[in-house]
Design a protein around this nucleic acid. Structure first.
Lengths: 216, 216
DNA sequence: GGAAGTATAGGGGAAAACCCTCATTTTCTA
DNA sequence: TAGAAAATGAGGGTTTTCCCCTATACTTCC
């Protein structure tokens, strides 16, 4: 029986490409594609799938949340995470939530095949680069003593508005004028944002906003 | 005779995927792939190519520079730009430099085929989203009167070091300590960076740094 | 029908970023 | 090897961000 694969990535050109690569292979069959996080769980309820290739950085509902939900509903599901970013918080977080592997988008096709096979068999696969990241993460782990989180906050509607304007280079003053609220209110939102995404300053805020696709 | 295609993208999984899609098609043949900007021109000198699928956001030497060089050496070369970002400055700039089309990575395979065919025939193709962006750009154009640039700077070695640390949330003070230079020197570099990428503040700097892959 | 969460807003202060001008040394490169 | 570009640094100022604290009105959810 073929290994049945679901591809979940919001870039359809990428998803189509992977599909095309995989369908050339023996014993593998791409049976579905999802272009956003929300449609994955409904799909799984109607179709038999062996392994999900899951983009970590999905818009709306991100890959980590999706992963958690999927594992909750289908504890045996094999999930191979795929991402542009080789960042420790992503890797550890999605693994905590049940993913069985993590590869980067600059992975070649042989390695991709190997990863799929490994995960399908119930084992775990990491790209070489990712392994290094994890190791580096483990090194730095328990030293500051921080509970070591580093991700998914829940941004409110208003905070997101403010965040978008920050990324567009507006100052706090200007944001207040645009949204018809006081400078102090904007400052409050900024503070919450810094705390929620756990960064020190605007630079980190903008970086995480982009990496975590907080701007849709 | 088949249309001979060169794919230039640093994410090999993506490049492989596109290759796989295209090789399924009649009359099309992917004859090469480049994973960075520097290897494109040498490749073209040794191989006959009809059309290049060029990622705008290549590391090291970006897509726009590559495009310029390629057109300088091969004025008749057909270039179809592909990007994650639907941003006006990218679109207009790469078109100025000789690209014949611009599509996003969330483009489906039918549209991709259509784009390739269109461009190969010497015509111009834009994704629907991109067309809107261009229109919006034209609207806002000649009103501030700015010479309307909006991009490619040449970041020096030291500036890049500083930039990386900024993105990693270090303050000017800390950057100075890390690089063993004075706070004032770091400020100088920050100023140059703001000017070169033409943004107002750190938020814009970080955004552009990521979008333009200034951090490799 | 409270409790939790969100949006609002203020005071006050410290730190950081931003801006301008200028000058010296080092390093590339034509 | 001379000039350009890059890296260094300073003085002195303004603006913005960040960080405490507190506090009220409104929504939403259990």
């Amino acid at each position: 029986m073929d290994t049945r694969i679901l591809i979940a990535d919001d870039h359809s050109m990428f998803a189509d490409g992977i599909e095309s690569i995989l369908n050339e292979q023996e014993g593998i069959q791409v049976v579905g594609k999802c272009y956003d996080g929300a449609s994955i769980l409904p799909y799984l309820k109607k179709n038999e799938i062996d392994i999900i290739l899951l983009d970590v950085n999905l818009p709306e509902k991100n890959g980590i949340e999706v992963c958690k939900e999927v594992i909750a509903a289908f504890p045996e599901m094999k999930i191979l995470a795929i991402s542009m970013f080789n960042q420790e918080s992503y890797v550890t977080e999605i693994l905590k939530n049940g993913a069985k592997g993590y590869i980067l988008k600059n992975t070649g096709r042989e390695e991709l095949m190997q990863a799929i096979q490994t995960v399908t068999e119930g084992n775990t696969f990491f790209s070489k680069d990712v392994t290094q990241t994890i190791m580096r993460g483990l090194m730095n782990e328990r030293k500051g003593g921080t509970p070591s989180k580093g991700f998914i906050p829940k941004i409110t509607r208003r905070e997101k508005e403010v965040l978008k304007l920050i990324v567009q280079e507006y100052t706090t003053q200007e944001i207040g004028e645009k949204l018809f609220i006081s400078l102090k209110t904007v400052e409050s939102h900024r503070s919450s944002l810094l705390a929620k995404v756990s960064v020190r300053n605007t630079a980190g805020l903008v970086r995480k906003a982009i990496e975590h696709k907080l701007l849709d």
